[in-house]
Amino acid sequence: MKIQYNLPCNIAQTLNIIGDKWSLLILNQLFDGRETYKEIQDGLEGIPTNLLSERLKSLETNKLIVKKLYQTHPPRYKYILTEMGCDLVDVFNSFILWGEKHLNKCCNTLVHKYCNGKVEHKYYFPNCDSYLEASELCVIQNEKISEV
């Protein structure tokens, strides 16, 4: 993906990596356990094959996924989330929670896997062992900003 945003902002820089059409949905397929090109394609009705290939290469270049050979003749690969890719789970869960609250037609609910109780988002501050409200948070700009 070409760089769209040249701003000193974490959101803009993250969007440069995963903000293009289909990338988040491809990552979501991987979170859902689909690993092969065919499984991902089948889960994303309407994605052109050339675009899926391009997005998978971009996600690999950006170290969110790795490609592993699982069959040699013909060569077939599976796609696996890296640790960096797996770290997006909280972002995906936040999308689900936001959707539960704001979408007219909510397709998913985030629940505890053992008791099915609904989940709510909290910010934990370990320095004082307490939970904070979003209104108690602020974003500060780091003094040393590397080149964007």
Score class of each variant (00 low, 15 high):
Glu147Trp: 09
Leu88His: 04
Asn116Arg: 11
Leu64Gly: 05
Glu133Phe: 13
Glu54Gln: 14
Ser146Lys: 14
Ser94Gln: 13
Phe31Cys: 03
Asn104Tyr: 06
Asn16Val: 07
Thr49Phe: 01
Leu56Tyr: 09
Gln13Cys: 04
Val111His: 09
Gly99Met: 13
Ile96Cys: 03
Lys21Cys: 01
Asn16Met: 05
Lys113Leu: 03
Lys63Arg: 12
Lys38Thr: 13
Leu7Met: 09
Lys68Pro: 01
Lys68Trp: 00
Pro74Asn: 08
Lys21Gly: 00
Pro126Thr: 13
Lys21Leu: 08
Gln141Met: 12
Val89Lys: 15
Glu60Thr: 10
Lys113Asn: 06
Leu132Cys: 07
Tyr70Gly: 00
Cys107Asp: 10
Val139Asp: 10
Lys68Asn: 13
Lys68Leu: 12
Lys21Ile: 08
Thr72Asp: 12
Thr49Tyr: 03
Gly85Pro: 07
Tyr114Pro: 00
Pro126Phe: 15
Phe31Gln: 05
Trp98Arg: 14
Ile18Glu: 04
Gly117Trp: 04
Asn93Leu: 06
Thr61Ala: 12
Ile11Arg: 04
Glu45Ile: 11
Gly33Thr: 07
Tyr79Ile: 10
Phe92Asn: 09
Ile40Met: 07
Val89Asp: 07
Ile26Phe: 04
Ile65Leu: 13
Tyr77Ala: 02
Glu45Asp: 12
Asn127His: 12
Gln29Ser: 13
Leu52Trp: 11
Asn50Tyr: 15
Pro126Asn: 13
Lys21Val: 07
Cys9Tyr: 04
Ile26Gln: 05
Val66Pro: 00
Asn28Leu: 10
Cys9Pro: 00
Ser146Asn: 11
Ser58Val: 06
Ser130Asn: 11
Tyr37His: 12
Lys78Arg: 10
Leu97His: 02
Pro48Gly: 12
Asp90Gln: 11
Gln13Asn: 06
Gly117Ile: 04
Lys63Asn: 09
Leu25Thr: 01
Lys78His: 10
Asn62Val: 01
Ile18Tyr: 03
Pro126Trp: 15
Gln13Arg: 13
Val89Ala: 10
Lys21Pro: 00
Pro74Gln: 09
Tyr123Ser: 08
Gln13Glu: 11
Tyr124Thr: 09
Lys2Gly: 08
Leu69Pro: 02
Thr82Ile: 06
Arg55Val: 05
Lys101Cys: 03
Glu54Leu: 14
Glu100Pro: 04
Tyr114Cys: 03
